[in-house]
Amino acid sequence: MMLAQFRPIAEGNYYPPDVAGNPVLALEYKSNANNTLCTYFNNKTDDSVPGGSTYKSYWESVYYLLAIFVFFRVMVIVSLVLQDTKFGEAAGDTRNQNIGQPGAQ
């Protein structure tokens, strides 16, 4: 299969100007196995990019996604705990009020 990937045009300089001095697309499309898509995104954390880049490195992205995953899972539990005391009143559910009482079926 033909290898297809993005790679930076030049190391540390992702927006080289063209002959007219205008910035060109930061991607060079090559069939070159030495540089990978992931390498491209890893290199995009370089602050030397004019205007700055907001791409994160691969493992930084992994950590952010893990943090979001754990945060919202914990927030689900917190949300349910905070609502827990209101459940009976909000639902108007009195069917279980006799649980544990003498004569309950």
Partner: peptide, 9 residues
């Protein structure tokens, strides 16, 4: 995982 967590929240 992150999207489903946000959805459940």
């Amino acid at each position: 995982q992150a999207a489903s967590s946000l959805g459940y929240f």
